[in-house]
């Protein structure tokens, strides 16, 4: 008994010595501000800033490789606080939100067939491209809602994802999750949106979806010089930030949308 106590004490002494020596000689000096800044960040590790996590972003901030406004999750006050603490410029803050390039929800876009199987968009997309007659359209099985870390996405009655602009941090998880690549991150100050991704034109487009872009090109003509161009049957916004709604006026289907705040709403649907 006495022997074993003695042995354990001896072992403790030996390892304790090794640890203290190691601490002295192998110590890595780290800027103490990193910890402070990391604590000031939201800690959600969402990756919207492009770094693997909040701490990595804090390191970038301290080494002046990034600007505090690069964190889209923090409130403006928090960003300013970090900027003041580090004595740097907060940087320009562009509020981005996830926007869906499809408006063809239930009752608007035609279903060519009925899908039965694993209830995710990713799975449905693998079976002949999904059940919608328009193969580019939103499948409505809520992979984006599941992927969203911030509960900013809710499916509405038309099975379209409603992105809450205040909750959306533009982390890009929904962009990755959507098998049809329908999401992009757009500045919230940019209300003009092409709400369709189908390259089909004319009757082929109209036959399968009431809100499809049929490539008529009126929006391009109305938007003014150099704002939009037609590419493969779809208008593309080349010069953002419009204050005039002119591009949307003559759109026959509403595919060219003017979106302020939430893109879709919860509505009582008339079937």
């Amino acid at each position: 008994m006495g022997m074993s106590i003695f042995l354990m004490l001896g072992l403790a002494l030996v390892f304790g010595t090794i640890l203290s020596v190691a601490h002295r000689f192998l110590h890595v000096d780290e800027d103490p501000r990193i910890d402070t800044v990391a604590d000031m960040l939201p800690g959600s590790n969402c990756g919207a800033c492009g770094e693997p996590g909040c701490r990595a972003f804090a390191e970038k901030l301290v080494s002046a490789a990034a600007q505090p406004a690069g964190c889209s999750v923090s409130a403006t006050e928090q960003v300013d606080e970090i900027a003041a603490f580090l004595g740097v410029d907060a940087g320009e803050r562009v509020k981005l939100v996830a926007r869906l390039h499809c408006g063809g929800g239930r009752g608007l876009a035609l279903n060519a067939a009925e899908y039965s199987g694993m209830s995710t968009c990713g799975a449905a997309a693998l079976v002949n491209g999904g059940n919608k007659a328009c193969e580019w359209g939103c499948l409505g099985l809520a992979d984006c809602q599941v992927a969203c870390t911030f509960d900013a996405i809710q499916m509405n009655e038309r099975l379209l994802p409603v992105v809450h602009p205040d909750l959306c941090t533009a982390c890009g998880d929904c962009v990755v999750a959507c098998p049809k690549d329908l999401f992009t991150l757009e500045p919230i100050s940019q209300p003009l949106l092409v709400q369709c991704k189908a390259p089909t034109t004319g009757e082929a487009a109209r036959a399968v979806c009431t809100v499809a872009c049929d490539g008529c090109g009126r929006c391009v003509a109305d938007a003014g010089e150099g704002v939009m161009v037609m590419e493969q049957g779809l208008p593309v916004i080349v010069q953002p930030l419009l204050t005039s709604r002119s591009a949307t006026f003559r759109c026959p289907s509403g595919a060219i949308a003017w979106v302020e705040g939430s893109q879709f709403a919860f509505e009582a649907m008339e079937v």
Partner: peptide, 8 residues
């Protein structure tokens, strides 16, 4: 006509 889509 109504077709059914299921996985192989």
């Amino acid at each position: 006509s109504k077709l059914l889509l299921v996985s192989s």
